[in-house]
Design a protein around this nucleic acid. Structure first.
Lengths: 173, 173
DNA sequence: TCGCGACCTTGCGGATTTCGCAGATCGAGT
DNA sequence: ACTCGATCTGCGAAATCCGCAAGGTCGCGA
C-alpha cells in the first residue's frame, strides 16, 4: 500500500517546480508550502502531525523544517500585540530621501525601535514602522534620530490609533 | 450576597475593561514578559529551558504559555517573507474616508488579501497592507474592491520594492 | 547505461519534552 | 481562622524529538 503512494507523490513534487518558475532565491515546492501553512496555524505543532497533514514522514518533515529555518525562509516565533506588551505608541513614517535610498534604509534597520522597513514606489521612498513606549520616545525617534540621518529630505508620520488586523497567513490562501 | 460578589470582583474587572478599549486585557508581569521574550527568540524552545531562563518550573511555564495563548496575548507562528512564498506584489495603501472610519476598516479586515489594517492619525485615516500574487491581482484589489467601498474618498498606494526589515521582537528590548 | 546526488522512507533506540494530576503555597476576602 | 482561587512544584506516563543507518526512487549528466 505504501509503494503506490510513494510513486504518485513523487510526481507531485516535481511538477511543483513549475509553480515557482520565477526564480527567487529558494524555490518552495507545494509540500514545503503546506508545511509552512501548518506551522502558521500552530508553530509548535509536532512533526508527526504535520507529516500526516502534508503526506510526509516525520523525519522528512523534520529535515525540511530545519532547512527552511536554516535558509531563513521562515522563522518560528511568538508574536504579540505591542500594546499589551507595554508599547503604547506606534507610527508608520513615510520618508523621502535624496541620494542613496538603500543606505538610509540600512540605517533605519539598525534602529531597535524600527520594526519594519520597506522601500516603496510612490510618494514615499521608504516606509518604516516604529514602536515606542510613549509619546516622548516616539518624538525622539522621529525628530532626533530619523530626521537627523543625512539624506533624509522629509518625513510624514501616521500615529496608530487602533490596530484592526494583523495576520501572518502569508502563503496560506 | 449576590450584589456583594459583583462589588468585590469589580476591582479586577474595571481594571481590565479600562485597558480593553484597545483590546488588551491583562497587564503582564515581568515573568510573562521574559517568557514571551524567550519565545520570540525561538517559538519552539522547550518549556524546561524557558523555565531555567526565567526562574520557574517547567509546569509553571507551560501553564503561563497556555494562558497567554488562550488570552490571545501572543501567538506562536511561522512567519515568512511573502516574496519567497510566491506573493510577488505587495503594497501599503493609505485611505481617506468620509463617514464611519471603523466600518471601512472592518470591510478591509474582511478581505483575505489585506494583511494589516490600522487606523491612524495624519493625512490618512487608514493604512492597509495588501499582499497579492501579481500586478493584476493588486490592481483588482485596490481599484475594484477597496475604492468601491462606500465611504472611501481617496486612496494612495505604495508598492513595495524591497523589504528590508521585519522583526517580531516586541518586548525584547 | 551507469553512477551520482537529492530526496524520501522505514525503523530504531535513547534522550528529551510534553502532559495531566495531585499536593504545597500564598494572598484576599469572610 | 478558614475557605477560595490562582499559582507554583513534583512526579510518573505518554509522546515527541533527534540522530543514525539501510534502503528506494527519480532526474541528470558523463
Amino acid at each position: 500500500m505504501h509503494s503506490e503512494v510513494v510513486a504518485s507523490r513523487s510526481a507531485d513534487q516535481r511538477d511543483s517546480s513549475r509553480e515557482s518558475r520565477n526564480g527567487n532565491s529558494p524555490q518552495l515546492d507545494a509540500v514545503s508550502l503546506a508545511i509552512i501553512q501548518q506551522l502558521q496555524e500552530d508553530g509548535r505543532r509536532p512533526y508527526a502531525a504535520i507529516g500526516k497533514a502534508v503526506g510526509l514522514s516525520e523525519a522528512a518533515v523534520r529535515q525540511r523544517v530545519q532547512k527552511l529555518l536554516d535558509q531563513g525562509v521562515m522563522q518560528i516565533v511568538a508574536v504579540t500585540d505591542p500594546l499589551t506588551v507595554g508599547f503604547r505608541r506606534q507610527a508608520m513614517v513615510g520618508i523621502n530621501v535624496e541620494g542613496d535610498v538603500e543606505s538610509i534604509a540600512d540605517a533605519l534597520t539598525a534602529m531597535s525601535e524600527v520594526e519594519y522597513v520597506v522601500m516603496t514606489a510612490g510618494s514615499f521612498d521608504i516606509l518604516a514602522e516604529i514602536v515606542c513606549e510613549d509619546d516622548d520616545h516616539l518624538l525622539d525617534v522621529i525628530n532626533k534620530r530619523i530626521r537627523a540621518l543625512p539624506g533624509v529630505r522629509s518625513t510624514e508620520s501616521f500615529v496608530y490609533l487602533k490596530l484592526k488586523k494583523q495576520t501572518y497567513m502569508w502563503g496560506t490562501r
